[in-house]
Simulated assay, not measured.
Amino acid sequence: MLAVLGSMKGENSREERRSKEEKRSREERRLIEERRLIEEKRLIEERRLIEERRLIEERRLIEERRLMEEKRLIEERRLIEENRLMEEKYFMESLLSVEKAKCKEFERLIPGFIARKLDFPTLSGFYEHWEACDECKEELSIQYLVREGMQRLEEGSAFDLQSELDQRLEEARRKINSHSAFLYLGMTMEIMVSCLLVWVFVWILL
């Protein structure tokens, strides 16, 4: 009887130990699974953070490239604008230089105009510049009034120099127009004669 009781007690003890061992094993598996899930979450979070940092870095690089491109375009436009302004400045300086040269040449020709000694090409250029340049109009008036006025004062005769200058300019204009018409007529006649000669030549060949 005692042996049976001892055997049963031993069986209960072994069952308890087995049950405890199973419980401990389940608890260990649960803890291992929890740690695995925690580690997975940590890895997922790390990957998310890494991806976020990658995207932030990509956006930063894209923004840097955009800003660099904007700066490059702004610099290009600035250089183009500078070149345009320099070209305009050079062009204006060239025009001013040409105009100054024309004005100097006009002033040099004033005595010849007053004395009616300018030939047709020179007179034509002189009159064309006079029409376009207010300063030279004034200079012509001053020199004409001074030269002719001194002479008239010495002669003691009455005079209206501005009207005389206007008449002199009108005379120059008519002279230029008539000479231009004559040149045009001459060129027209030359063309007609040339065409006639060509026609005669072709007629002879045929």
Rank of each mutant, 00 (worst) to 15 (best):
R36A: 13
R36S: 08
R36F: 05
L37A: 13
L37T: 08
I38S: 15
I38W: 07
I38L: 15
E39R: 13
E39Q: 13
E39K: 12
E39V: 01
E40C: 03
E40Y: 04
E40Q: 14
E40I: 02
K41H: 14
K41P: 00
K41T: 04
K41F: 06
R42Q: 09
R42E: 12
L43N: 14
L43E: 13
L43P: 00
I44Y: 10
I44V: 12
I44G: 11
E45R: 07
E46Y: 08
E46A: 14
E46M: 11
E46L: 11
E46T: 08
E46H: 10
R47L: 14
R47V: 05
R48I: 05
R48D: 12
R48E: 14
L49E: 10
L49P: 00
L49I: 04
I50C: 13
I50H: 12
I50Y: 06
I50N: 12
I50D: 12
I50T: 12
I50E: 15
I50P: 02
E51R: 09
E51S: 12
E51L: 09
E51D: 12
E51G: 06
E52M: 06
E52T: 03
R53N: 08
R53S: 07
R53V: 02
R53M: 09
R54T: 03
R54P: 00
L55Q: 11
I56K: 14
E58C: 01
E58G: 03
E58Y: 04
R59H: 11
R59A: 06
R59T: 00
R60C: 04
R60A: 04
R60S: 11
L61F: 02
L61T: 03
L61D: 05
I62W: 05
I62T: 10
E63L: 02
E63P: 02
E64D: 07
E64C: 06
E64F: 01
E64N: 07
E64K: 11
R65F: 03
R65A: 09
R65M: 05
R65Y: 00
R66T: 05
R66Q: 09
R66I: 04
L67A: 09
L67C: 04
M68L: 15
M68E: 15
E69I: 02
E69W: 03
E70I: 04
E70S: 10
E70M: 04
K71Q: 11
K71I: 07
R72A: 09
R72C: 03
R72S: 05
L73W: 07
I74K: 15
I74V: 09
I74A: 13
I74R: 15
I74P: 03
I74Y: 06
E76D: 12
E76S: 06
E76R: 14
R77M: 07
R78G: 06
R78K: 11
R78F: 02
R78C: 00
R78L: 07
L79H: 07
I80Q: 13
I80V: 13
I80C: 04
I80Y: 07
I80N: 11
E81G: 01
E81P: 06
E82H: 04
E82K: 11
E82Y: 03
E82M: 08
N83L: 10
N83M: 09
N83T: 00
R84W: 01
R84D: 03
R84A: 03
L85Q: 10
L85D: 06
M86P: 00
M86N: 15
M86W: 01
M86R: 15
E87T: 01
E87R: 12
E87V: 01
